[in-house]
């Protein structure tokens, strides 16, 4: 089935591929994420080695997980000799947002996304890849999505390798400054959208406020893990948006897609 997919089988595949975006377009869109990941995973490489992993173990963790927060928690559990159930639960909780994103992205995929491709491409679903994919003005096809994941995965793994090996050489102030990069990427996804949609703006502010409450109120902080805090803040803020705003401005995009 793989060789067939490259050759146009019937004429429907051509407009479908164009509509869902090309591999090259995905590659281009993924470049910025890949470069960003290179610097962020550099920090992860440093952290993993300082937690007792060897350089190849740090690289394997990055290659098989592609998730910043989940990996940081996972490496922490490894170095503390935590239980496997704990590992499982922490990964489910911290990465639960990917489930929400997967369902959300499902609403935007075109017909080229069959079960096998979905099962393979799900591996590369990250916050930033999702953010870029959903912000496209066309449907997301398998070729586009594959292209979009190539450079970020490469950057994530390469950065981890570099960090694991070179981390000790870099001065701390430099690695600290590089850590801001990942949040810069988050901001660059949210702000342009918030600028054009009051609902997104309001919901983002609500999410920030709840997240801060969960962090700064001592009782809440000691009872709710950071992974859960993100989920609670995000779900409440989105629900407020759903029930307090009319949904006309979201509708126009759907008509186009």
């Amino acid at each position: 089935m793989a060789p067939e997919s490259d050759v146009k089988i019937q004429d429907t595949s051509v407009p479908a591929a164009k509509n869902g975006g090309t591999f090259h377009e995905g590659l281009k869109d993924g470049l910025a994420i890949g470069l960003g990941y290179l610097s962020v995973s550099f920090s992860f490489g440093i952290l993993a080695v300082s937690s007792g992993l060897s350089w190849w173990q740090a690289v394997l963790v990055s290659l098989t997980n592609i998730t910043s927060a989940g990996q940081v928690a996972g490496v922490g559990i490894m170095s503390a000799s935590g239980g496997l159930i704990e590992m499982m639960i922490s990964q489910i909780v911290i990465n639960l947002r990917y489930s929400l994103m997967a369902i959300s992205l499902s609403q935007k995929t075109d017909r080229s996304m069959n079960t096998v491709k979905r099962a393979l491409l799900a591996y590369g679903l990250t916050d930033e890849i999702f953010g870029v994919a959903v912000s496209k003005d066309h449907e997301v096809g398998s070729k586009y999505f594959f292209g979009l994941t190539v450079l970020p995965v490469t950057g994530w793994v390469t950065g981890t390798l570099l960090g694991a090996i070179l981390g000790g050489i870099f001065p701390e102030f430099l690695t600290n400054a590089l850590a801001v990069g990942i949040y810069g990427m988050f901001i660059s996804i949210v702000i342009p959208k918030a600028k054009h949609s009051r609902m997104v703006m309001a919901c983002s502010l609500i999410a920030c406020t709840i997240s801060c409450l969960l962090f700064y109120v001592p009782w809440l902080k000691s009872h709710i893990s950071s992974g859960f805090a993100v989920i609670i803040a995000a779900v409440i803020a989105a629900l407020v948006g759903v029930f307090c705003f009319p949904h006309d401005d979201e509708g126009e995009k759907e008509v186009a897609a």
Partner: peptide
């Protein structure tokens, strides 16, 4: 439900950024 899933990425990223970015460095 559609609006909920459209909003989720932005609320997730917002909640992950604040207040974490203030302590990143």
């Amino acid at each position: 439900i559609k609006a909920f899933f459209d909003l989720i990425p932005y609320t997730v990223l917002s909640a992950m950024t604040f207040p974490a970015i203030l302590y990143a460095t």
